[in-house]
């Protein structure tokens, strides 16, 4: 695959792949990040995968841009691209209570799509969404993509506060706010899962996973929320090969 390496300062560089949003390309980036994590002799201190880039932080006490970029060129070219199969990919199920107080913009999205709210929910839950990367907030997934029909643009005026767990649509993107935050997404529902816990800040999914939303009732919402807060809710995961309609 084509790539170039550019500096971002004296302690970081970007490995840049062709600029596109593409599941296969992005999966290769996550695989590369995982193998680089094993190469402790390179002086790498952190890695930030995004859509088409892999940002590498390094320690100038151990290496520098010249040396590391040369080593990375060789490493990437020698790297065997392992086949990414549906059986090797993970789907994480996110229960969502749609509409009403949980999803104040569901009716607006239905109107935009010229569908009933029920049909919008069915479309949103119809397929798993690929998580390209996490950023903005811990556990905030840049995931997609929703069917064109419900791809409603962001609100004109962002809301000052969205509840933690709010599930929304912003154009073709979909995802959830792990913590209460201002935001301009069309909020169609809310997940009862505690996605961010400051004492254990890593989310139950990571970049390269797929998210499958599942509609639940308000009663389920309360029950799952209590279990999740108590740390007793086991997030459901399965293999992509066990789902229908994944890309």
């Amino acid at each position: 695959m084509k790539f170039k390496i550019v500096p971002i300062g004296e302690q970081a560089l970007n490995i840049v792949f062709p600029e596109k949003i593409d599941v296969r390309e992005n999966q290769l980036i996550h695989n590369l990040a995982a193998s680089l994590k094993q190469q402790s002799h390179l002086g790498i201190v952190d890695l930030i995968p995004a859509y088409h880039t892999l940002t590498v932080n390094f320690d100038v006490g151990l290496t520098d841009f010249e040396q590391l970029s040369r080593q990375l060129e060789t490493f990437i070219q020698a790297e065997k691209t392992t086949e990414i199969t549906a059986a090797s990919q993970r789907v994480v199920e996110i229960p969502v209570c749609y509409g009403g107080q949980y999803g104040p913009d569901l009716t607006a999205v239905a109107k935009f799509a010229e569908l009933t709210p029920q049909q919008v929910i069915a479309l949103h839950c119809q397929q798993p969404y690929y998580v390209y990367f996490l950023g903005f907030l811990p556990g905030f997934a840049y995931a997609g993509f929703v069917p064109d029909k419900i791809a409603m643009p962001r609100l004109q005026q962002p809301r000052l506060k969205l509840a933690a767990g709010s599930v929304g649509i912003a154009g073709k993107q979909t995802g959830m706010y792990p913590v209460a935050s201002p935001g301009g997404w069309q909020i169609i529902g809310q997940t009862p899962l505690k996605l961010y816990d400051p004492t254990n800040p890593l989310p139950p999914y990571h970049a390269g996973d797929w998210l499958q939303f599942k509609a639940i009732t308000a009663a389920d919402f309360d029950q799952i929320q209590q279990a999740s807060i108590a740390g007793k809710y086991q997030v459901k995961t399965y293999r992509l090969s066990e789902t229908k309609g994944a890309n």
Binding site: V45, D46, N57, L202, H206
Partner: peptide
């Protein structure tokens, strides 16, 4: 807090 930026955790 290095090593967790891939999860969106700021440094």
């Amino acid at each position: 807090r290095w090593g967790y930026q891939a999860f969106g955790v700021p440094v």
